[in-house]
């Protein structure tokens, strides 16, 4: 049933989409993490005018499909072309690549900020108090005590989010980008050999996810110097 020759033929074609998949995932994960950290920290102050807009942003981006978000940014904002041109942002919103990056970044920032907020809240209160007793400023406490512990505890949950993002990049194929899933769809509709293409493209994604899981496990050990893993 599975044609090995065809399988070997499509693998290089699918691999040619990997750099774009990685660029989409990498850029949005890094930008999204920075934004998520900012949003999580901003909510520590518990100032209502700060917290309420962030909560709304998070609820909206977690409560609607990523596909709607991409369409809203790519097609929806295209409607405001004259205004975007006036402020010089049209070059950005004209490109499906940047629209996909923006949607993925905002989406992962919404999920990520909840993970980080929970992790920061779960740092035992005594640690912060001890740091203050030592005369550390709030910023120093955050940088040297709270964040290292919170980030380490957030790794497993954030790892899931990173894998969801790698899978999420596949939606960029719907706005014409030819990353791995886009190439796979074209191959399937040309050849009608869905199983071979699915297996080849699926293996690529599983391998990427495997690398991410291993890298994060390594990072978790690195961030836990006093606890050596058995």
């Amino acid at each position: 049933m599975i044609d090995v020759g065809f399988f070997l033929e499509i693998v290089p074609q699918l691999l040619s989409g990997v750099p774009l998949t990685l660029k989409l995932a990498g850029t949005s994960i890094l930008l999204g993490f920075a934004l998520a950290l900012l949003l999580a920290l901003a909510q520590q102050g518990e100032h209502r005018l700060v917290v309420w807009p962030i909560r709304t942003f998070v609820a909206v981006f977690r409560g609607t499909p990523l596909l709607v978000q991409i369409f809203l940014i790519y097609y929806g904002l295209g409607q405001f072309r004259p205004s975007l041109q006036a402020i010089g942002l049209w070059g950005l919103f004209r490109e499906p690549y940047w629209c996909a990056i923006l949607a993925l970044t905002l989406n992962t920032a919404a999920y990520g900020s909840e993970i980080l907020r929970g992790a920061i809240r779960n740092v035992p209160r005594g640690l912060g108090e001890a740091a203050q007793a030592l005369g550390m400023t709030r910023l120093l406490t955050l940088r040297l005590v709270i964040l290292p512990i919170a980030l380490r505890q957030a790794i497993p949950a954030y790892g899931n989010e990173i894998i969801l993002m790698v899978k999420g990049t596949s939606l960029a194929s719907i706005v014409t980008l030819l990353e791995v899933t886009g190439i796979a769809r074209n191959l399937i509709s040309e050849s009608y050999r869905a199983i071979e293409v699915f297996l080849a493209a699926g293996t690529i994604y599983l391998f990427l996810n495997f690398l991410i899981v291993r890298a994060l496990a390594h990072l978790e050990v690195r961030m836990t110097p006093y606890r050596s893993r058995s």
């Binding site: 869905a194 699926g202 994604y205 599983l206």
Partner: peptide, 22 residues
């Protein structure tokens, strides 16, 4: 579990759509 949680859902949908039709 590994396959269908690790592969993009869009790819799975294409598999069933085209694979099912074939």
């Amino acid at each position: 579990g590994t396959i269908f949680r690790g592969v993009p859902d869009l790819l799975t949908i294409y598999l069933f759509y085209y694979g099912g039709s074939v």
